[in-house]
Structure formats: structure tokens, C-alpha cells
Design a protein around this nucleic acid. Sequence first.
DNA 1: TACCATTTGTCCGTATGTATG
DNA 2: CCATACATACGGACAAATGGT
Lengths: 85, 85
Amino acid sequence: MRWDGLHVIDREGPTPLYVQVADAVEARIKTGDLPVDRPIPSENQLVQEYEIARGTARKTIQLLRERGLVVTIVGRGTFVRPHPD
Amino acid sequence: MRWDGLHVIDREGPTPLYVQVADAVEARIKTGDLPVDRPIPSENQLVQEYEIARGTARKTIQLLRERGLVVTIVGRGTFVRPHPD
DNA sequence: TACCATTTGTCCGTATGTATG
DNA sequence: CCATACATACGGACAAATGGT
């Protein structure tokens, strides 16, 4: 069975949507579900998977960059960086 | 006289650009100016004719698809469907 | 075979306006 | 006032499919 991660999102709670989605993606990176040097879900895919606006998806990816987890290449996508461990 | 449809577009009004352009193209379909099984203007042609961004042209065509007026074939174009009437 | 132009598909980046809490 | 979230609109870059040379 495939896990879409939808159930971890709480739209009523105090945590911003983009932080919740970033946490969910970070978890998938940490477990290896999203492998190093492979792309994470695109903005539009995040929009569909989590039912969020594109601006929210962009904030999610920006936060993941600030956390040092991913690098973005214009016109290609956002990729998982090698883990520092 | 030739009608370019440009003058019907209102960039200040409340109606989104892509809806206005879709309405204009739908009118051309309804009058037979764009015949059945023939292509409508390509995305790039809509960009030039209406002076809009390509993303706006894509939303226009997507809306026409949702209205059931056209079908799109990758690498070929978007074509007028047979009228249901 | 290879190449090329056209067209649609898919990405990212940016900006503005509106609405809500 | 400010942060969050969504919708609209613009721009650029690259990929895939098609059809022709």
C-alpha cells in the first residue's frame, strides 16, 4: 500500500501548513524513502499530494533548502543532498 | 473586416484573463470560425494574439478542455470537438 | 539514420491582489 | 500590523512527442 502522508496534516492547528509539509518530506528523506541525489516531489506534486496552494509548496521547499536537506536546480527540480552523518 | 478579438480583453476588470480568452475562443468555435476537427491557435499563438503569458494560455486551453469543447494531443495541438448539439 | 521545427508537458522563479486570523 | 494561504499573471528553462527534411 502507498502512503500519501495526508493524514499528518492538521489545518486547524497552530503549525503553519508549509512547516508541517516540510516536516513530512524531511521524514521521508531521513528514512531513505526519498534517496540522496533523487528529486523530491515537485511543487505541483506537493500541491496535489497535500492539497495545498503552490505558494505553500514553494515555502515548503524553501524551508527544506534552509535546513540544508535539498538543493534546487532551476528548470530541473529539487534534489536530496548527501546526508551529513 | 478581420476580427482579432483583442479589444474584448479587459485587463483591469474582475474576470481573470484566462477566462476572458477562453470565452473569446469559445465564441469562435460556436460561430464555426474554428471548425470541428481543426486545431485552435497553439499556446504560442494565443500568447501573441492576446499578448498574454504562456501559463495564462495554458490555463485558457485547460478551461476549454474542462468545458468539453476541445481535445489536446501532445506534440500536435488542441482540436475542436464535434459540437454536441 | 540523423536532424530540426513545432507543440504540449513540466518544472522553477517572481510579483501582485485578496482574504483570514 | 503581520503571517499565512490562495488565486492570478508574468517569465524562463528544459523535456517529450510529433512530423517533416
